[in-house]
């Protein structure tokens, strides 16, 4: 049971780091761009909020097949097929959790507005410098919210994992799959233990997030 929890934590941690690296620039672009396709891109990012995980999982499974588009493009560069691997789950989690990370960060960038950056520019800060010393600290509540939500959402992921994981111990058998195994074999005690853990974890995540956000907002004001 411990190995399942560790694997789940590892998946969530790796996915969260990638989500922040990908999601922050994307959120910045969404907050500041005037391109006409902006809201279209935002809608694509938000799709996992409404799509059934089975739809996403089905597309990912087809896309990851040895003769699918991902392998066709990246296979010649040495990429191994992604289905049934930890890396495959990371890819799925990043897609699935993207809106949970991008949206809070975008909102934070938008709330900070252009003026602090204009002020930084008049003090001769280079744009990149201003981004790291002004924009990012101002958006820190959003970044934190995004990170926590992305992590928690990946921990709780089930449908996509079910579709592309293959339930391999130590590789793709994460918490939600282990719970399914226990429930389907009527091992209530084990199912209860893991489920209670998830319940407690989720509660703590939401509570912590609310408290941290409150404190940060107060400090920034």
């Amino acid at each position: 049971m411990v190995d399942v929890i560790l694997l789940t934590a590892k998946l969530a941690a790796v996915s969260t780091v990638l989500l922040l690296l990908l999601g922050t620039p994307l959120a910045w672009w969404l907050a500041h761009s005037r391109a006409w396709i902006k809201e279209g891109v935002a809608a694509v990012v938000a799709l996992p909020l409404v799509l059934p995980p089975t739809v996403l999982g089905f597309y990912l499974l087809v896309a990851m097949a040895p003769d699918g588009p991902i392998q066709t493009v990246f296979g010649p560069l040495g990429l191994k097929p992604l289905a049934f691997t930890f890396s495959g789950l990371v890819v799925g989690s990043v897609v699935f959790s993207l809106p949970f990370v991008v949206n809070p960060i975008r909102n934070a960038f938008e709330a900070a507005g252009e003026r602090p950056l204009e002020a930084a520019a008049t003090l001769r800060a280079a744009p990149l410098d201003a981004f790291f010393t002004v924009a990012l600290p101002l958006a820190s509540p959003g970044l934190l919210t995004g990170a926590i939500l992305g992590f928690a959402h990946t921990v709780g992921e089930f449908g996509v994992v079910l579709m592309i994981g293959g339930n391999i111990p130590g590789e793709t058998k994460v918490l939600s799959m282990a719970i399914l195994d226990y429930v389907e074999t009527l091992q209530w005690a084990e199912a209860h233990a893991l489920s209670a853990l998830m319940l407690g974890f989720s509660f703590c995540v939401i509570l912590t997030m609310t408290l941290i956000e409150k404190r940060l907002r107060r400090r920034l004001r």
Binding site: L61, V62, M64, A65, P66, D67, G68, P81, A83, F84, G166
Partner: peptide, 10 residues
């Protein structure tokens, strides 16, 4: 069956 049919498992 679906894993094999999609070619993800040989």
């Amino acid at each position: 069956h679906q894993f094999v049919a999609t070619g993800n498992a040989e």
